[in-house]
Structure formats: C-alpha cells, structure tokens
Simulated assay, not measured.
Amino acid sequence: MTGDDYGQLIYLGLLGSVLAFWYFVQGRQKLGRTLQQMAAWVLIFLGTLAVIGLWSDIRGTVAPQQTVMAEDGRIALPQAPDGHYYATLEVNGSPIRFMVDTGASGTVLTRRDAERAGLEDDELAFYSEAMTANGMVRTAPVRLDTVALGPFTDERVPAYVNEGEMSQSLLGMSYLQRYGRIEIADGELILER
C-alpha cells in the first residue's frame, strides 16, 4: 500500500467512527436494534472492500480471454463488453495489450508500451504524422524485433510510436495483413494463418 492508500484508509476509518458515534447517540433507547443494524453495515462495508481489493482477479476470471488453437492455426479474440476486440502480444519479449483496429493502416504503440518493449524514448524520432479522429499527431516509425501472438512469431514488424496521449496501443493492418483470414463471427474475431 502507498501513502495515499493509508491516508484514504485513515479517512474512511474516521468517517466511519463519526457515523457510528452519531448513530449510537441517536438511538440510545434501542441499543439492541442499533447493534444489529451496525453489524449489517459493517458487513456491507467489509464486503465492498473485499470486492474492490479483488476486482482485478474477479475481472480476469469473468472477462473472456483470447483463445489460441495452435493445431488449427487459429486465434480467437472474444468481443469485449465495450464492443472492441483486444489481443495480448509479446513485443520484444514483453506482453502488451492491443485494441484490434482494422481501420488503422499501421500498428501504433503508446509511449508507455514502447518503453515496455525496450524502445527508449530518447531514441525515437517523431518526424512522421498520422491523421486520427482527434486530428494530426506526430509519430516515430520503428521496427519491432519480434512480435508473437500464440504460436505465430514475426520479426522486424513495422510500427509507430505515438507522441501524443493514447489510452491503448492499436493493432492495425500492417500486422493483421500477415494473416490469411480475418473473420468476425459469433462475438469473436478469428485470425488464421
């Protein structure tokens, strides 16, 4: 836990104490019923804390995951609740999550993902431009040494690093065209070689 987490925990503890004190003062005559209600609220509070603390585990269990069928040469990406398709690829040995964008001509990394893939920010030359839904952005052309998705590994894959803010790296057609078949059916995006 960070210092901010401890501060928030202390704040919540103080707030809970003040509310509990007020509740006891208001209901002195009905102490038994007050204790029952307080116990119920404590359980609700603890349950909420447990869900918040375990949310990433819960989401990972409930959310559909990409499926690799190596023997068939297929990769099936389930449709996410937001309607998009996401894939986790090993870029230069680091797992990076991409949003699949068949409308994008190139594969574009965020600066943070580029750093995770071993591309140093001070070595990037942002001299090319790309038109996005938010207007023109400067990009740095790069070559990714290795890109792996399931059993498929490609070398020297062209990509771009976006100089601006992006929430998600995009997997565009410069990579997707390496597959012989791209199909969307039954809530899945299927890639085959």
Rank of each mutant, 00 (worst) to 15 (best):
S94C: 06
L35Y: 07
F98N: 00
G93Y: 03
Q36M: 14
G73D: 02
G53Q: 04
L89K: 03
Q66S: 09
T61P: 13
T88V: 04
Q36Y: 13
A87R: 00
G83D: 04
L54Q: 11
T34N: 06
G47A: 07
V68L: 11
I58L: 08
V91Y: 01
S56T: 12
A50P: 07
D101G: 11
T67W: 13
L77N: 01
Y86R: 00
L49E: 07
R74F: 08
M99I: 09
V68N: 08
G47Y: 05
A80L: 08
I75D: 01
W41C: 10
R74M: 14
A76W: 03
L54R: 12
L46P: 06
Q66V: 03
P64D: 03
R74Y: 08
L77F: 02
E71P: 09
W41Q: 10
A80Y: 05
L46G: 08
P64G: 01
V62S: 06
A76C: 12
S94R: 09
M38S: 09
S94F: 06
R97H: 02
T88Q: 05
T107H: 03
I44C: 13
Q66L: 08
G73H: 02
A76P: 05
V42T: 10
R74S: 11
V68T: 12
T102P: 10
T88I: 02
S105N: 15
P64V: 00
G83I: 03
L54I: 05
T48S: 15
H84Q: 05
H84G: 05
S56R: 11
V91T: 04
Y86F: 03
F98K: 01
I58R: 05
M99P: 05
L43A: 15
Q79A: 04
G73L: 01
V100A: 10
T102E: 13
G106I: 13
I96N: 00
A76N: 08
N92G: 06
G47F: 04
A104L: 09
A104M: 09
A104W: 05
S94E: 08
Q37Y: 11
V42P: 02
F45T: 15
G106P: 11
D72W: 14
P64W: 01
A80Q: 12
T67N: 13
A104K: 06
A70I: 02
A87Q: 02
A63G: 10
L49H: 10
G83E: 03
G73Q: 02
P81H: 08
Q65V: 04
P64L: 00
Q66K: 07
R59D: 15
T48L: 15
W41R: 11
V100D: 09
T88K: 04
N92C: 06
A50S: 14
P95H: 02
M38Y: 07
A80H: 11
I96V: 04
H84V: 00
R59A: 15
M38H: 09
D82H: 03
T102K: 10
D57K: 12
M38P: 03
L35V: 12
P64Y: 00
F45D: 07
Q37M: 10
I58W: 07
L46F: 09
I58P: 02
A40R: 14
Q36K: 14
A63H: 13
I52K: 15
T48C: 15
D57E: 11
W55L: 10
V68A: 11
R97Q: 07
E71T: 12
